[in-house]
């Protein structure tokens, strides 16, 4: 399926270009825009972005696989990232993670196998994350762009139940 920016995203992209010294440097924001629109970066999106930025497709693939924020396969409507770096681990993030696994009846996704951590109804994808820079309020998780702090199993229930 060919991909193309929506009119709004196209305008957004045009605004980004003059902010950077060379077109190639607009790679990250362009990929974010594209992922927001398409849900994940398919080969078609990769080729579209490469065309926009006038770089080889491999440059896009290179950046895309470097950053765990980009997905190369479909993910759930809500992407849950549970921090498992040291302070969160000390604050028992394992308990939180196990609780979510049980509640959603799913495994934790691997970076190269997101389907493994995605619920069959396509609502949630569960990922482990490296430090989310909120160690003072550990354990923490992000659901899409929102950070949730001082998690307990009970709090997780409330958060997940509130998501439509």
């Amino acid at each position: 399926m060919p991909f193309e920016f929506s009119e709004e995203n196209r305008r957004e992209f045009e605004k980004l270009i003059p902010r950077y010294p060379v077109k190639e440097a607009v790679m990250l924001p362009t990929l974010h825009l594209a992922q927001r629109q398409a849900g994940y970066i398919s080969p078609e999106v990769m080729e579209y972005v490469a065309g926009l930025l006038e770089v080889p497709v491999m440059k896009v693939k290179d950046v895309l696989t470097f950053y765990p924020m980009f997905f190369e396969e479909p993910v759930g409507k809500y992407v849950i990232r549970v921090c498992h770096t040291l302070p969160c681990a000390l604050a028992d993030c394992k308990l939180v993670l196990e609780h979510i696994k049980q509640k959603l009846n799913t495994d934790v996704a691997a970076e190269t196998d997101l389907a493994k951590g995605t619920t069959p109804d396509g609502k949630f994808t569960l990922l482990k994350a490296e430090c989310l820079a909120s160690c003072d309020v550990a354990p923490v998780m992000m659901v899409n762009d929102d950070l949730y702090k001082n998690l307990t199993p009970q709090k997780v229930d409330e958060i997940l139940d509130s998501l439509a």
Partner: peptide, 10 residues
């Protein structure tokens, strides 16, 4: 000048 190769992952 063909740019076919790159690095994947980290």
């Amino acid at each position: 000048g063909t740019g076919e190769l790159g690095l994947i992952h980290r």
